[in-house]
């Protein structure tokens, strides 16, 4: 709908170049939103993804600067491993200290960003410091699709299969649905929640390497404030903030939708300043709808259970 409206008003929006830009811009948020969805489904949240992305992206820039000949695939591996470590720190603090994930990841948001600042200082790495092959990852296309968008689709499909068709994936839903019952059931709650945080870290690491490929500069403030867009994408995509339901496909569509709105607003020449306000409205609308649906369900349940009283 949105796409149609925008395309009619601004024909430039649906040109191949326009679509390509849209997909490229969405890719990074899509990958982050998938990780966030995994965490939110277990009734937790990871606010530190923006900082993880910043830290790993700067790390990527550093790697290329220090070891100019490093194989690109190795950079991906290192970036994801780095993300995994940062995610594991979140997961361990949440599961061992039994403190709400919100508080822990709010803290690590600060800490990771601070580490990034301390490490980077005023340094910034630019695309020129990186091999051409690496930068072209985000411009090359296969059958008209950008390479990294295909990568993002592969990630969506992979994670979707894990969530829908493995016991570990289903456990995440059970945990988010009723943590106490899950524990009573013998589901390894601690291990699964830790896993979700590590996965979110890995995906943030992947997104960070792609970020370094797509954007010119990486420095101390890369990825600042991104966590809001990511949480919004997941929630708008139908991942219930109370845990227990939602899909990564939904989260990916949510991310795409948010990016589309942003691009559409630009294309429609709506003041760019409205973008953040719209993100806020979307979050609140999404959780309100969620709540109203479940309230309605509860009321129907009570009346339908009414025997002949």
């Amino acid at each position: 709908m949105l796409v149609v409206v925008t395309a009619t008003i601004n024909p430039l929006f649906l040109t191949p170049q326009g679509v390509k830009d849209l997909l490229l811009n969405a890719t990074i948020v899509v990958i982050l939103a998938i990780g966030q969805a995994l965490v939110i489904i277990t009734r937790n949240v990871d606010l530190s993804v923006g900082s993880i992305l910043g830290l790993v992206a700067f790390g990527t820039g550093t790697l290329f600067a220090v070891y100019p000949g490093i194989p690109i695939i190795l950079v991906f591996v290192i970036g994801m491993a780095f993300g995994a470590v940062l995610g594991a720190v979140n997961g361990l603090l949440v599961t061992i200290a039994k403190v709400p994930a919100l508080v822990i990841t709010l803290g690590t948001l600060y800490i990771y960003r601070g580490v990034n600042n301390a490490w980077a200082g005023g340094t910034q790495y630019f695309a020129g410091d990186r091999p051409r092959a690496f930068s072209s990852l985000s411009t090359d296309t296969i059958f008209g699709f950008p390479l990294i968008t295909l990568l993002a689709i592969a990630v969506v499909v992979g994670v979707a299969i894990v969530l829908a068709y493995t016991r570990a994936g289903r456990d995440l839903y059970a945990i988010g649905s009723d943590p106490a019952a899950a524990r009573l059931f013998g589901i390894p709650v601690t291990r699964r929640v830790l896993g979700a945080f590590v996965a979110s870290g890995v995906l943030a690491g992947l997104a960070a390497v792609l970020y370094a490929s797509r954007f010119n500069a990486v420095g101390a403030t890369t990825g600042t404030g991104l966590e809001l867009d990511v949480v919004a994408a997941a929630v708008v995509g139908g991942v219930a903030i109370f845990g227990g339901s939602g899909t990564v496909v939904g989260a990916a569509i949510g991310a795409l939708l948010l990016t589309t709105i942003t691009s559409a607003l630009t294309a429609l020449r709506v003041d760019k300043f409205w973008q953040q306000a719209i993100v806020g409205v979307l979050i609140i609308a999404a959780i309100s709808v969620d709540r109203l649906v479940s309230l309605n369900r509860a009321r129907k349940l009570r009346v339908s259970e009414a025997r002949n009283v």
Partner: peptide
């Protein structure tokens, strides 16, 4: 209102208004 009348979790609501109010400031 969102927290007490609609019964929404304050964490989610105020993440939303965090973005919303800052967005209004920009507007």
């Amino acid at each position: 209102f969102l927290v007490t009348a609609l019964g929404l979790p304050s964490l989610a609501v105020t993440i939303g208004t965090l973005a919303l109010y800052r967005g209004f400031a920009l507007v």
